[in-house]
Write a protein that binds this DNA or RNA. Structure first.
Lengths: 345, 345
DNA sequence: GTAGAAGTGATGTACGTGCCTCAAAAACTT
DNA sequence: AAGTTTTTGAGGCACGTACATCACTTCTAC
């Protein structure tokens, strides 16, 4: 005979199906002694409930939301594409994912958007936003309202510590360090580090990891202070130009943030010795092209599709109160060279 | 109102549920004109069927089988672990995965095992076995019996070309080549290539990719002919010892097969200059340890858990006659250094 | 040549899958 | 007896399936 069902359980515990249901869903209105009797029966007959059937009966749709920055760069595009794709394949699994945008440099606005999410309309939110007190508090309120939260790409420090779906940024920095050390051969010189901002925890962690490895394995190289462009293309170009003129011995460049359009353009326009090693983050159409033509040497990336699906699974599981397969959710720090570049989308 | 259901479809098409069902499952006994009417209605109201409910109603379990080699090495262990883990989390989704072992060096035995699989007991098979005519024919017979097949890790050439779940081995070889060229700096010397056997297509592809990159980017290095150990530990040790004594200028070693226990042991015992770059395949407890202690410099790997889950999804989808999300199933050629090594299991 | 039997293909009916839920009954409290 | 708490029953979610039904053909016998 097959797996035990609620019916078998009911018989085994000597109660009705409805009571079983209340115990399974930890709802109240069941005497403690009955709860225990049922739980004993569950263990005895080895009952595992069929969540597919449960969701069907509940005729419940999981409504999930991704909160993304409202500016458009290639990385956000990738994320949006991955969400759209996931949404397609999740339609079968009664899950509906939507996207909300909010200006990433305005914590109050983000908090406002989050606070306006009602448990009536939404079961879970994946938040991609800088780590600010306002957002932290909003997350706490979401949690209080029974909306589950995961931090997407960027960490969020909260009391309830929502899951973080993204790479270990220190490991990413260390990996870049190791590659930079190896790829520059035995050359001496300085390394430029370009970033959007060192304010964010992610940047700090990457830098930390990078420095630790550079100090340990490539002391011959001088790592310059991080240069911030604050997301301003003009400033980005100016900084790079100035740095390349000032430093004649640049042997490597670490592009720490993912939006590198202007930066790379300027570097190429300015011209660098062809041995200059350039390593950046995130596999986008831009970095792909750069890898192919050899202007970039390596890209450290996280699988965006995987992250999106992982977030969805986590949110669904948390919303349904189910365990998840942790190993499947771990996001790897991937190294992409020209040779192992996956085919496009 | 929510998604359209079969009931809505039936009304829209002006037929009963049973007819809808017949059309959806491409069963016979429906007039062509009716089929067309239903299909038109499907498109019109945008019907997508709820596979969860379908499977529930069918009260069907997908019974899948992995055919693995019957010898035990660390890679097989990983695969078995991943299967066990997947089995746990798939229990909810009415899927049951089991493992069958067969000697990988005996094609007739493998064919025999496959031929004994009945469509009564099994819906799909993931085959990890060398590419032989016997297995090819067995796959054709499986297909004829209505059992779906995917090739797991190793390619299988068949008329029906079953899906292959595994990495692009040529890309893997190219990636090793690029790393080898980079990591050896500007040094000159020779590169050893050690493998179990060059008979298999996978090995040939890896070698091809490796050679192409070495020739192009590191002509200063001399790549030696592949040395085969035929899976024999004693022979493996002897070969390595001989090679290292004969070649005084070894700057890099490419370990092409995944079972490298004796080989690495011998290399370490024999002693090589510490700058010798050693690159191998598959992240196992062994290669992890080697990476940590610095005796290996990089490992090219495929995510075993991902591959197992991917195979399961593919088999289920094919067995159910459903489309799959291709991008999710693509297996990446992963580069693992000490710095980006994922935590164990 | 036609009524009737028998056969064939197309379509519908009713109930089942494992679980949830609402209303109503039963078992306890005060 | 009224008020609570606990339990039950019946019906539903979106779909599948054995069996029943219906409309035609084809064949036989008169």
């Amino acid at each position: 005979m097959g797996k035990p069902t609620t019916k078998d359980l009911a018989k085994a515990a000597g109660v009705s199906l409805a009571t079983i249901d209340r115990v399974l869903n930890a709802r109240l209105g069941v005497r403690q002694s009955t709860v225990e009797r049922v739980q004993k029966a569950i263990k005895e007959i080895g009952f595992v409930r069929d969540m597919a059937a449960a969701n069907l009966a509940r005729s419940k749709e999981y409504r999930l939301v991704f909160l993304l920055p409202d500016h458009d760069d290639e990385f956000i595009d990738l994320v949006q594409g991955a969400i759209a794709e996931a949404n397609m394949s999740m339609a079968h699994e009664r899950t509906n994912v939507s996207i909300i945008r909010a200006p990433s440099n305005n914590p109050h606005q983000i908090a406002f958007v989050l606070d306006n999410l009602s448990a009536e309309d939404v079961d879970g939110v994946a938040i991609m936003a800088p780590e600010t007190p306002q957002v932290r508090d909003s997350i706490a309120r979401l949690d209080a309202r029974g909306i589950t939260v995961v931090a997407f790409v960027s960490h969020q420090l909260t009391a309830q510590t929502p899951c973080y779906v993204g790479i270990n940024n220190e490991a990413a920095g260390r990996t870049v360090g190791q590659l930079m050390g190896r790829f520059t051969g035995e050359r001496h010189g300085s390394i430029l580090v370009l970033t959007e901002s060192m304010q964010s925890r992610d940047s700090q962690e990457r830098r930390l990891g990078f420095d630790s490895i550079m100090a340990k394995y490539a002391p011959r190289l001088r790592v310059c202070a991080s240069m911030e462009n604050y997301g301003d293309p003009v400033r980005a170009a100016k900084i790079v130009k100035a740095a390349l003129s000032a430093q004649q011995d640049v042997v490597g460049i670490y592009l720490m943030n993912h939006d590198i359009r202007e930066t790379m353009q300027t570097i190429i326009a300015q011209g660098t010795p062809k041995e200059t090693i350039i390593i950046g983050h995130e596999l986008t159409p831009q970095t792909r092209a750069q890898l192919v033509e050899g202007t970039m040497d390596a890209v450290i990336t996280q699988d965006v599709g995987h992250m999106v699906r992982s977030s969805i699974r986590l949110l669904r599981a948390k919303a349904a109160g189910v365990e998840t397969l942790a190993s499947q959710e771990r996001i790897r720090v991937e190294i992409i060279l020209r040779e192992n570049m996956p085919e496009e989308s």
